[in-house]
């Protein structure tokens, strides 16, 4: 089970990094070992990414100072505002 925090911090970005690395391994002209394993790296990244996007983001802690959206018309109707 992958925690939401772990997914956001490491798993999601790690999957993207693996996909990019796989593409670079496939197209680089120097090291045959990397080229031969590039598809595997891309597949791991692709599967990881698809798992990662299905995990919901971590819940954000409620800000006590945040009073939510403010309506000017409602505030004036309630007798608030500058006199």
């Amino acid at each position: 089970m992958i925690s939401r925090e772990f997914n956001k911090t490491y798993f999601g970005p790690g999957s993207i990094a693996l996909m990019v690395a796989g593409i670079l391994f496939l197209c680089q002209p120097r090291i045959a070992f990397l080229h031969a394993r590039s598809v595997l790296v891309m597949l791991i990244g692709l599967i990881g990414f698809n798992i990662s996007v299905h995990i919901p983001p971590p819940e954000q802690a409620a800000d006590e100072d945040d009073i939510g959206p403010v309506s000017i018309s409602q505030t004036l109707a309630a007798g608030g505002g500058h006199d």
């Binding site: 993207i16 996909m19 990019v20 796989g22 593409i23 496939l26 598809v39 891309m42 597949l43 990244g45 692709l46 990414f49 698809n50």
Partner: peptide
Amino acid sequence: LIMVLCITNI
């Protein structure tokens, strides 16, 4: 296809 899928996901 796998390579293009990776680019599409990004």
